[in-house]
Write a protein that binds this DNA or RNA. Structure first.
Lengths: 215, 215
DNA sequence: GGCCTTATCAACCGTTCAGTTAATAACCAA
DNA sequence: TTGGTTATTAACTGAACGGTTGATAAGGCC
C-alpha cells in the first residue's frame, strides 16, 4: 500500500528531494522487513508511489539504495546521540541516561535492528567504508571513557572498566531483545514487544549494568 | 564447491539417509550465509553433490528444507545442553558453566546465530510451532531457576532474580557479539573473531553476569 | 516563447529462480 | 529372473526479478 500521508508538496509534479525521501522511507521499511535479498524493487517503488526508474535514476541500483538506507540510519542515531549531554550529568546518571537512550532508540526504531542484522549477513560490506563507522570507535571511547573515568574518580564505579567491553555489553543487552524478539516471544509464550514487558526489560538492563559498575 | 569429504558410503548409489544428510549440511551453510531469501536451491544441491530434484523429493520445497535445517539446529544445541550436569555443581560454578557453555556453543556454531537472525526477519514463523521451542521455557525456568534458588539459599546470589530475565541477558551478552561481529569489527578496526578476543569476551561475560548475581 | 535540462513514465528485456516432469536406474523381495 | 518400489537424473517451465530504454512532460532560464 503506497504511502498516502506524504503527498508531493505544493502540487509540484517534479521534486527530486521529495522523490528521494519517498524512496528512502519505502526502502527502509522494505529492507528492514525482508532483508536485501528478499526486498523487491517493484515493491519499494510501489510503497514510495514513484516510478521504478526513479530508484535507478537516483541510487544507481538496488544495492546503492540499500547503502543509502544504511547511511541514513546511522545518521539518524548519530543525530539523536548528539542531543545527549552526558558530560553535564553525574557519572551514574550519565551512564543510566546512555543505557536508557540506547534501549529507547531501539524500541522506537526496530527497523534499525533489522537492518544491522541483515548487514551482518552480508559481512558489513555495504557499511564498511562508511564515514559513519569511522570515528564511531573514538566517539564511544571518549563518551563512555569519560563517564567511567569520572565515576571511578568519584568512587562510584569499579576501577579499570574497559569502555569498549562495556559498550558491547550495553549494546548486547539492548539489541538482542529486539533482534530475537520473535523467537524469544515464541519460547516464552508471550509478546515481548508489549509495553510493560519493554519497560521491565529497560529497567532490568539499567540494573544489570549498574551492578557491574558499582564499586 | 561440492563436499568431497563425505562421499556416498559403500559404493552404494542410492542412500536416502546419506542424501538427506548431504542436503541438510549444504542447506545449513547456504541458509546461514545468505538467509532464506538469498539462498539458492541450485547452489544447495551443488554443495550437497546431489540432484536438485532430491531437495523436493525429501523436503517438499525450499522453505521445507529451511524448516528442517532450523529444527536440526535446535536439536543440536539441545543435545549438547543435555550433556551439562549443572545440578551436580555448586551454584556459582553451575552458573559459570552455563554461561561458558552458551558462549562456547555460539563460538563453535556461528551458523546457529545467523540462522536465528534470519528466522527473526521472518518473524519466527518457520519455528513457531516446533516442538523445540515448546518446552524450552519450562526447561530454562527449571535449569536456571534451580541454580538461582540454590545460590540464594547459600547466600552467594542476590535474592529474587527472575530466571527468564537472567536468561535473556546471558543470551544477549553471548549472542550479540557474534550476530553483529562484522559491524562491530568494522567499528573497532579489529577482527573480533580472533581467538584472544573471543577468550577475553567470554571471561568478560562471566564476570559481568557474576557481578549482577553476587550478593 | 522557446529551448535545454531534469524528472518521470510505461513498456520491455534477458536472466534467474523455484519448482515440475517424464524417464531411467538401482535396489530388493518374491 | 522379474516386477515393483524407491532413488535419482536431465531437461524443462512459467513467473519473478533487477535493470534498461526510448519517449514524454515539467520546469526554469534566457
Amino acid at each position: 500500500m503506497a504511502q498516502q500521508a506524504r503527498k508531493r508538496p505544493n502540487d509540484v509534479l517534479r521534486d527530486s528531494e521529495w522523490t528521494k525521501a519517498q524512496l528512502l522511507d519505502a526502502a527502509r521499511l522494505e529492507f528492514s522487513e525482508k532483508g536485501l535479498s528478499g526486498a523487491r524493487v517493484n515493491d519499494i517503488a510501489a510503497r514510495a508511489s514513484v516510478n521504478k526508474q526513479m530508484l535507478y535514476y537516483y541510487f544507481g541500483d538496488k544495492e546503492g539504495l540499500y547503502c543509502a538506507v544504511l547511511n541514513h540510519a546511522y545518521e539518524g542515531i548519530r543525530a539523536r546521540e548528539n542531543e545527549l549531554d552526558l558530560a553535564a550529568l553525574a557519572p551514574v546518571a550519565a551512564m543510566e541516561r546512555f543505557i536508557g537512550f540506547t534501549f529507547d532508540y531501539l524500541t522506537e526504531n526496530r527497523y534499525f535492528v533489522a537492518l544491522l542484522n541483515d548487514e551482518n549477513i552480508h559481512k558489513a560490506r555495504h557499511i564498511l567504508d562508511s564515514e559513519h563507522l569511522q570515528g564511531l570507535h573514538e566517539r564511544l571511547q571518549e563518551t563512555i571513557g569519560d563517564i567511567l573515568t569520572r565515576g571511578e574518580r568519584e568512587g562510584v564505579f569499579r576501577p579499570n572498566v574497559d569502555p569498549i567491553d562495556l559498550y558491547i555489553s550495553i549494546a548486547s543487552l539492548c539489541y538482542f531483545y529486539y533482534s530475537n524478539i520473535h523467537t524469544l516471544s515464541a519460547i516464552f509464550g508471550r509478546d515481548l514487544s508489549d509495553r510493560s514487558a519493554t519497560h521491565h526489560r529497560r529497567q532490568h538492563v539499567i540494573d544489570f549494568v549498574g551492578a557491574y559498575l558499582e564499586k
